[in-house]
Design a protein around this nucleic acid. Structure first.
Lengths: 161, 161
DNA sequence: CTCAAGCGTTCTTAAACGAAACCCCCTTGC
DNA sequence: GCAAGGGGGTTTCGTTTAAGAACGCTTGAG
């Protein structure tokens, strides 16, 4: 059946998220959206993605409320795609992907572009929102509510290497 | 050419990262790897992914150094797949995906499983590793090294909504 | 000797992709 | 008035990939 995302049956926030943004093109579309891209032709040109694929991705992003359309011309009828709040909350996802690639593919400091926060190099660090500490691999636990299958909590609570 | 990831030409850490882990199954494989899964049959059973696809994904993860194989039996020859350091550094990626799904799909606190850090609910927060501040949308800048095309820095430095 | 576990590979079929053509609506220029 | 062009897609068609089931291989157990 092609790639009809049958991992949907998984009751897990990660799987659920991937239903929405799990496509590689989708993430690049969002990257460019954060980059200020708003229109069909801009994405098409930058990404080189097939037009039908782009149209389809934009449609599902709108459907899922990650992007919304906003008319910018009546005649001819034209609209642009803007990030919603829900979409804007994906920034940390893009930032962690960015950071991983920069360090693990390009090699520390050899990335073609880097980010600067207030004058100093920016690197994202993940901390616990409540206590501000960086959680180790051991002190994160999962709590199930009403699910039997051990899905994801241990996932991130435990190291396996 | 099917989906031969031609966004490879993009000189961008995000695109580069997606070359490695941009497939939806790959991310679920990694989720389970963090969950303690180490063997072919375990993944196959949990994910319900086609065996040929699983084999192919594991192969490329090993090729990219995200997983490594470790023999656990000589006769018959068997090995398991373990996260490398490089792979373990993907934890923040999984955590941000988890968090986004929990909040934006299940709705605050309604996720089937949640995470607990040292007794209190865990939510990841992203801060600047240097100064510890949570970067706003305005105070992040991109610095190009030798690339002409405006690719990603603005992406994350600027809001577009 | 047969069976089962564990890890894939091979095969067929049905989606999804990629590329290019085509279409609609409107504006501009001649 | 009519061709040219920009913007935003949809249609068509050939190719690639994924899904799913079957098969193969090696070894240990009964």
């Amino acid at each position: 059946m092609g790639r009809t995302a049958d991992y949907s049956r998984q009751t897990c926030p990660i799987a659920a998220t991937l239903e929405v943004i799990g496509d590689p093109w989708t993430l690049l579309i969002l990257r460019d959206a954060f980059n200020g891209v708003k229109r069909f032709e801009q994405w098409q040109e930058r990404l080189g993605v097939a037009r039908n694929v782009l149209a389809s991705r934009l449609k599902t992003l709108v459907m899922h409320g990650v992007l919304r359309t906003e008319p910018y011309s009546e005649r001819p009828p034209r609209h642009e795609y803007l990030l919603t709040d829900k979409g804007r909350e994906l920034r940390p996802v893009l930032l962690t992907l960015y950071d991983w690639g920069e360090r693990n593919i390009y090699g520390e400091g050899r990335s073609p572009n880097r980010m600067v926060h207030d004058g100093h190099p920016f690197r994202p660090k993940m901390v616990c929102a409540s206590c501000g500490e960086e959680p180790g691999s051991r002190d994160l636990r999962r709590v199930d509510q009403d699910v039997a299958a051990p899905t994801v909590g241990e996932a991130l609570a435990r190291d396996a290497g």
